[in-house]
Design a protein around this nucleic acid. Sequence first.
DNA 1: AAGATATAAGACTCTTTAATCTTAAATTAT
DNA 2: ATAATTTAAGATTAAAGAGTCTTATATCTT
Lengths: 144, 144
Amino acid sequence: MFLSKSCVYAIRAALLVTSRTNKRTRDFIPLQEIAAELNLSFHFLTKILQQLTQAKIMESFRGPRGGVLLAKPASSVYLIDIIKVVDGMGAFEDCVLGLPDCSEKAPCPLHREWKKRRQELRKMFERYTLADLARGKRVLNLKN
Amino acid sequence: MFLSKSCVYAIRAALLVTSRTNKRTRDFIPLQEIAAELNLSFHFLTKILQQLTQAKIMESFRGPRGGVLLAKPASSVYLIDIIKVVDGMGAFEDCVLGLPDCSEKAPCPLHREWKKRRQELRKMFERYTLADLARGKRVLNLKN
DNA sequence: AAGATATAAGACTCTTTAATCTTAAATTAT
DNA sequence: ATAATTTAAGATTAAAGAGTCTTATATCTT
Ligand code: SF4
Ligand code: SF4
């Protein structure tokens, strides 16, 4: 998997929060509900979303009527932001073959191409926001 | 990691075998030597290379003067062949987000782009052979 | 103030991948 | 034949990722 499972869950959850958010009232969305809809363990989801709240991508609120909410508009939360927090940027920085002593000066034939593809992937995640993914007529069926 | 560690080791080992092979005598290369040069556990390497011999990418020979050798010319062993055996083709077939109910008819915005990138990556591994990687003035430093 | 509801934090377990260790089988050299 | 060498096969251990469970803390409602 290019992205870890946790990371995919984080994106799915964020997407669900996006599509659920009532712009007027801005009620917090309880993690119980998100976990149920995503068909994942509540406590596991909790841990993942904590990373997002700590990174100020979401904000949370405890107690009755508590839950999570995006800290900024969905149109300014890029997928790469979530990936960076959950998985780190390794996928866009590391080498495919991991030959250790190969420098930019004496690269293997794959080097240029891999770097380019890696970069394009990165750009892809830098280009799309939660709003982009949540938009559209497509039904958001996020169950496993 | 896009490729598993085992898969990277397999490629490195194959590369070493390639560059070591004496075209005239075609002596088998002992796994001990490969393991030492690659700085990894002999028995671990054994298991990995067994997959390659079972897939007829390499051939092996037991006993003194035994070892492994490429079963065909390095110029006709494509990286994808090795990847397919060790990791399978999942990396080039699975979705990034893994939303389960999204069809080709109602894809998410990432769909097209991801599919394209994934395909390009695959083509990259389909294009390069062991000979391509072993060639060139580049010193093959494969130690960890 | 008390009880209910909800996230936070951390310990714990399960699964997969990575790595090691042991024993068996094949082959060569003496 | 026997001993040495080398891969094959499989059991075992270690580490990392994924997932569960328990306890603490904050907040609301009554
Ligand atoms: S030259 Fe580049 S792509 Fe090739 S092994 Fe080195 S870092 Fe990786
Ligand atoms: S539409 Fe395609 S890219 Fe998007 S989640 Fe579905 S399979 Fe993945």
